[in-house]
Design a protein around this nucleic acid. Structure first.
Lengths: 196, 196
DNA sequence: TGTGCTAGCCTAGTGCTCCTAGGAAGAAAG
DNA sequence: CTTTCTTCCTAGGAGCACTAGGCTAGCACA
């Protein structure tokens, strides 16, 4: 196997790493396994990727981009509660369908080393934009964004590790959580004097 | 260093592993590093601990026990919003003070291999008990528990990986989140007919 | 059509890791 | 004092990340 040239690229390696991550978990992605997948020796990958951390960062950027695209598509044309539900649905769907990629987006990446910051920034813009309908001003707006992100991330990651043992349907709980968040956002307890 | 007998025990090793995890991160805890810490060869640890996964599980149990004790102490004698704030405060405080231990509690452990399940069960009891004041019936109760757990876990883990870049004070956002959760629980959107 | 050059992939090797098998020495029990 | 058990050891295998340096395919250019 392994013709003279295997046609490796940073992109192909990154994509394969992301696929592998979805199968075996993000932390279990190894350079060796990727090399085997391409029918190539370990050392050959280091011409395209600096090291394992670099590879992980690339996967994180790839996943963040895919995810924000899906969320953007889901939210497009909606507002208020519809937008919230669409955002949440796309978010959870991606996280469950691509657990390895999703874990990558949550790994602490050195943002200074990321070439393309756009995917990460766009997620923030989308979230703030979605909240526009709820008419919140700073600092409540940021607090709300943090609450949403926390809930989405917390729920999906607990679900992914099997944290919900109760027999209650996990989808129904999720819908209910969205409902509850909507209520929270519409009856947001405004900050009195502590500002900035 | 390293007299004839170093006095190793599964407990001492587990505790050292937990301390190391808080320093360098849960995934970066190695058997070799622990052996060095005790002035002992790697192989010596395997008389007390089956393997790395077993060690990780032990750390998870240890951490879960510590955490639930602190939360129980904080919640004791309180109810309603006071209890919620105390629970949340103890949870976040432990997670931030002991990031490695906290990560251990969130690692997917094979519950079948856990000798003492009590710590894990007690957390659930505490959460359900805390919600008693809000007068929710199933399945809303379970939904609410899941929402709380998600928010707590999501917030602390995002905070831990540096996910909150905005200049808004992280403690203030947390207080606001608790406030919002309290509002949500008091105005819980009851499920109509979809049940159990 | 030949000649360099530059990728792309290789071999070889280091050091760290987890983990096993089997041996020796201290501690405890008779 | 002897036996036995526990604790820790040496020795070694296999997988992993990563480096240094060599060979060659296939391109650009003459």
């Amino acid at each position: 196997m392994a013709a003279a040239r295997a046609g490796l690229t940073a992109e192909r390696i990154t994509r394969a790493a992301a696929d592998l991550a979805d199968e075996v978990g993000f932390d279990n992605v190894t350079v060796s396994a990727l090399a085997r997948h391409f029918g190539v020796k370990d050392a050959s990958l280091y011409s395209h990727v600096k090291n394992l951390r670099d590879l992980r960062t690339r996967v994180a950027v790839l996943a963040a981009g895919e995810m924000v695209d899906l969320i953007a598509a889901a939210v497009a044309g909606r507002s208020g509660k519809d937008a919230l539900a669409a955002f949440a649905g796309a978010y959870r769907s991606y996280a469950l369908r691509h657990p390895g990629r999703y874990a990558a987006t949550q790994s602490k990446v050195d943002l200074a080393q990321v070439a393309d910051l756009a995917p990460f920034l766009r997620t923030g813009e989308l979230t703030y934009g979605m909240l526009r309908a709820y008419d919140l001003a700073e600092p409540d707006l940021t607090d709300a964004v943090r609450l949403l992100r926390s809930t989405f991330h917390g729920y999906t990651s607990l679900e992914a590790v099997g944290g919900f043992q109760h027999s209650r349907d996990v989808d129904a709980s999720w819908d209910q959580a969205i409902e509850a968040l909507h209520v929270t956002l519409t009856h947001w307890p405004r900050a009195n004097e502590e500002d900035r």
